[in-house]
């Protein structure tokens, strides 16, 4: 931990932390941005050279997305797949009905033919 500021007043320490803090946050994010702008293509280039041989031209192996295949196209494809999976089940009305079951007549279940029946 950094304990270099204990002797000054809190407000002065606050200003020091504000300035250094902002600089560090920006420094970290700028480093990341620079790495992904410049460092990563170089890394991938080196990787390709190591794995695929040195005779490849840079233009062939540079990190390059398909220019025509934009994020918007992938978003549309994603949305349509999502909609497809969400709407493929059938929608039911949600209304429950109880239908009266009519049984066909059978003398075997008829009460008038029971053993105890008295006419």
């Amino acid at each position: 931990m950094i304990n270099i500021l204990l002797t000054t007043d809190p407000i002065s320490e606050g200003y020091v932390i504000l300035i250094t803090g902002l600089l560090i946050v920006f420094g970290a994010l700028v480093t990341l941005a620079l790495f992904f702008n410049y460092g990563l293509p170089v890394m991938l280039y080196l990787y390709k050279i190591i794995t695929k041989g040195k005779d490849k031209k840079i233009s062939e192996i540079a990190v390059k997305g398909d220019e025509d295949f934009t994020g918007e196209i992938s978003a549309v494809i994603g949305a349509s797949i999502h909609m497809y999976f969400n709407e493929q089940h059938d929608h039911e009305s949600g209304i429950l009905t109880i239908k009266q079951v009519k049984k066909t007549y059978s003398p075997w279940s008829s009460k008038i033919y029971g053993v105890q029946n008295k006419l």
Partner: peptide, 28 residues
């Protein structure tokens, strides 16, 4: 992906942190 595709936008995430440090000072 969107961040990797356009790394300079990372700086906007840093700029918003000024709220953190300004409030810190305000609280002091």
């Amino acid at each position: 992906s969107s961040l990797i595709a356009n790394p300079k936008l990372m700086l906007l995430g840093g700029a918003a942190q000024i709220g953190v440090f300004a409030t810190f000072l305000g609280a002091l």
